[in-house]
Design a protein around this nucleic acid. Structure first.
Length: 807
DNA sequence: AAATGACGGGG
DNA sequence: GTGTACGTCATTT
């Protein structure tokens, strides 16, 4: 049979490890078991023959069981391109890795171990030469009529080909949240919405209110609703299940509720339960036979690589960014009331829930093609790739490349080595101190993929660094004593060069397809995937946890980078452009009365002077921008879109009044070009605060209680508020969201913070809200426009005649 | 000045 | 994969 490879995992059959491949064959989805699989690692030492023999006899203990190698062989491999002889040690079971690895390390004559830290399913994909999200051919023993599980009778092989139509479904849950944030032991799931790419729309709930839309299905209880959710997912049988922050919220919440209600979350195609890979800071929910993709993690990735830049990454904001459309909003504080009382709020609640699932599906369908290509390029599953950082993507591409060259994969650093790396520092990119203030008519240039271009152009790699063969004639790094080989191409530059070449070919091919065609979209996604991975290579070189970390290479890259940007800044000044700001690989110039044509002529001139594949590009024209400090600025483009960088410090532990004011201020400056209007906004707000005309809800600060009250060594405002809440008789426990207000009076901020529940007879402290909330949120911006705090602060004493008149 | 604790997405 | 993000900010100590 032939099918698209959706997933690969390690399973067990009668104590024996087996690989389970999930294949989609037309409309049928099957699981194929490959028993011909053996996990392994390598040992290096003085005398490989002797070592092989020694290792063959090694015995370790694991849970009171004796563990021995399944097989041992002496092999030839390379390390940094140099041939080495190694001992390859096969395991009977992947779980034998830790005990055997420890035992082998203790043996005399063993110098180092390799590839003990490559997960077995990932290793399998590479060794079989398979490509996830592409075709696989495999001969199977049919286990009966249409059985979903089959046994491979010969090894699966890559067959290429396109992914056919995949069924994609999204879902979202709504939770009862009377205490602000939901408490999983008490607060039920009250709605589950679903949407799929075949047009299915559904909101499940378990309370009947008047006049619900036709897509609502009302169940008898939370338990029945969850059962129905599971039933629908299995019936509609999506290949990809999407959600927004489902790794961290929906699935963990559903899991806990399902456990309490004694209902199984059996979403797998074989009826298996959702499983969780848990970290302290992250988790991932896995469903057998379907790819659970958390759209938030894809969005977060796009934000990390700078491909999208929003102030917030809520579903609402992200949906607006990607589709240009608005979705209905619904305040989470309205939810309990809507649930209990129905009416108009209930209708809006349902529409909101439905729109969450639909928006997730829409955004997911926009992003998936890119992540499917990333999955193919680095040859790892979509489940894993959609959760990787850019550095991990590069690393997995290199691991794949290393495996096919017989190069041993360096281990992830641990212990001392890692600690030492953390200590190592080196000079980074050049960042110019901006010409602070508001500027008009800007042109922005940047070097196309500067760092990968440098790595390729100058052959930067751990194996080509300070090589013997090029002493005195290799490529010198500006300002550093290093050189790089001009004879042999390094492993990393070679890998990047392939990516860059392939990408150039794809971009050429793109020209022959209309922008809206399927071919264009798929080729475009692929070229973007190449670009993303190439651009992440430098970050990996300098990341202390990376396998191919090299401080010398990383600092050589930044040194070349500084050289090119500085040279370009000098050239632009010589041409009469005012450089307002420059960072790493981009420069921001004022047109200064020159035309867009002049800007293009400058570009041409610079490019004539650059070596290899290094190239400057025109990023765009911006009518207005406000520059604050290094890394902090905001601009508006010709289409009226705001680009905000480094100012995203307004968070939920800030009062709403601070968030609202900051947004209004940026709009006034960039859209209207009027700092004066921005100043008026601030004066109006501070005055409203002083005169008590701001709604209490705009002054509330929400901070989560992360520990039991007693565990706090440092008693912050939310802890004091929580204590006061407890004294009132409320149960206060970790995870609770504390809503508090800072009131007038003597003492520290903490001493003056009261829970919202105690605010009836108390007065908020205007000074705190002005000095610690509103002004910090806007001052950084206003400062560079020549305003001082006192110009913007409304106080009765300082009120000037004109203000009294205006007021 | 150093230490501590919280932010993100979700409801 | 058995790991403990990550860089930044406010407030307390």
């Amino acid at each position: 049979m032939r099918g698209i490879l959706l997933d690969v995992e390690i399973a067990e059959e009668e104590e024996h490890p087996v690989v389970r491949l999930v294949l989609k064959d037309g409309s049928r989805k099957v699981m194929v078991l490959d028993h011909a699989f053996s996990h392994y690692f390598y040992a290096l030492g003085e005398d490989p023959e002797k070592l092989s023999e020694l290792i063959s006899g090694v015995e370790a203990e694991y849970r009171e069981r004796k563990v021995r190698p399944k097989a041992v062989e002496a092999v030839r491999r390379t390390i940094r391109g140099k041939e080495v002889r190694a001992v390859r040690i096969f395991l009977s079971h992947p779980r034998d890795m830790q005990p055997l690895r420890r035992a082998v390390r203790e043996l005399p004559g063993v110098n180092s171990l390799y590839e003990f830290d490559i997960p077995p399913n990932r290793s399998y994909i590479l060794d079989r030469g398979l490509v996830p999200m592409e075709g696989v051919n495999v001969r199977v023993e049919e286990d009966g009529e249409g059985a979903p599980v089959m046994r491979a009778s010969s090894p699966p092989v890559r067959s290429g080909g396109e992914v056919g139509e995949l069924r994609i479904m999204s879902f979202d849950i709504e939770v009862y949240n009377p205490g602000g944030s939901p408490r999983v032991d008490r607060d039920p799931v009250i709605m589950i919405s679903l949407s799929d790419n075949a047009g299915y729309r559904k909101v499940l709930t378990w309370k009947r209110h008047e006049g619900s839309p036709e897509y609502v299905e009302c169940l008898g209880s939370e338990r029945e609703m969850i059962e129905r959710f599971v039933e629908i997912v299995r019936e509609r049988d999506p290949d990809i299940l999407l959600g927004y922050n489902t790794d961290m919220f929906d699935f963990p919440y559903l899991r806990d509720r399902a456990k309490m209600l004694k209902v199984r979350l059996s979403l797998g195609i074989d009826g298996s339960d959702v499983t969780f890979r848990r970290h302290r800071f992250a988790s991932a929910a896995r469903i057998r036979g379907r790819i659970h993709v958390d759209v938030f993690s894809m969005v977060d990735f796009m934000a990390t690589i700078g491909s999208i830049r929003l102030i917030h990454y809520t579903l609402e904001d992200v949906y607006r960014h990607f589709t240009g459309k608005e979705k209905p909003d619904f305040e989470f504080t309205e939810m309990p009331g809507a649930w209990e009382e129905g009416g108009e709020p209930w209708m809006r609640f349902i529409e909101y829930s439905m729109s969450d699932a639909e928006a997730t599906l829409e955004v997911g369908r926009i992003l998936l093609p890119l992540f499917i290509e990333l999955s193919r390029v680095v040859r790892q599953t979509l489940f894993d790739v959609s959760r990787m950082t850019p550095g991990q993507l590069v690393e997995w591409l290199l691991i794949s490349e290393a495996r096919s060259r017989g190069e041993l994969v360096p281990p992830r650093p641990a212990g001392e080595e890692f600690e030492e790396r953390l200590e190592e520092t080196y000079a980074g990119a050049y960042v110019m101190e901006p010409v602070k203030g508001l500027h008009e008519n800007l042109v922005v240039y940047d070097f196309r993929s500067l760092y990968p271009s440098i790595i390729v152009t100058h052959n930067i790699d751990p194996s080509t660094l300070n090589c013997e063969c090029c002493r005195g004639r290799g490529t010198r790094v500006p300002g550093l004593g290093y050189w790089f080989c001009v004879e042999r191409e390094g492993f990393i530059p070679a890998t990047l060069k392939k990516l860059i070449r392939e990408r150039a070919k794809l971009k050429e091919e793109l020209k022959h397809h209309p922008r809206e065609s399927v071919e264009y979209r798929s080729l475009n996604a692929r070229q973007t995937a190449y670009k993303i991975i190439a651009n992440s290579a430098y970050g990996m070189l300098g990341y202390s946890r990376a396998r191919w970390y090299s401080k010398e290479c990383a600092e050589s890259v930044t040194s070349f980078g500084r050289h090119y940007i500085q040279t370009t800044i000098d050239m632009s000044r010589a041409m009469g452009f005012d450089v307002v700001y420059g960072d790493t690989d981009s420069l921001f110039c004022k047109l200064n009365g020159k035309t867009k044509d002049d800007a293009l002529r400058f570009l041409k001139k610079v490019n004539e002077s650059l070596p290899g594949i290094i190239e400057l590009e025109l990023e765009g024209f911006y009518p207005r921008g406000v520059f604050i400090t290094k890394k902090r600025y905001a601009m508006i483009d010709e289409a009226g879109r705001m680009v905000v960088k480094g100012l995203e410090f307004v968070r939920r532990d800030w009062a709403a009044i601070a968030k609202k004011t900051q947004e209004e201020v940026l709009r006034a400056i960039l859209r209207d070009g009027s700092p004066e209007r921005a100043a008026e906004v601030i004066k109006r707000v501070t005055r409203d605060i002083v005169e008590g005309r701001v709604e209490l809800e705009d002054l509330v600060i929400y901070t989560q209680l992360k520990m039991p009250i007693e565990s706090y060594r440092s008693v912050g405002p939310h802890v004091v508020a929580a204590k006061r809440l407890r004294a009132l008789g409320y149960t206060v426990e970790p995870g609770m969201m504390i809503a508090y207000v800072v009131v007038r009076g003597p003492g520290s901020i903490s001493e003056r913070s009261y829970p919202l529940e105690m605010m009836e007879k108390r007065e908020p402290d205007p000074d705190y809200y002005i000095s610690n909330q509103v002004l910090p949120a806007v001052m950084r911006i206003m400062e560079v426009l020549g305003y001082r705090e006192d110009d913007l602060r409304f106080t009765r004493e300082r009120q000037t005649g004109i203000e009294r008149f205006m007021g």
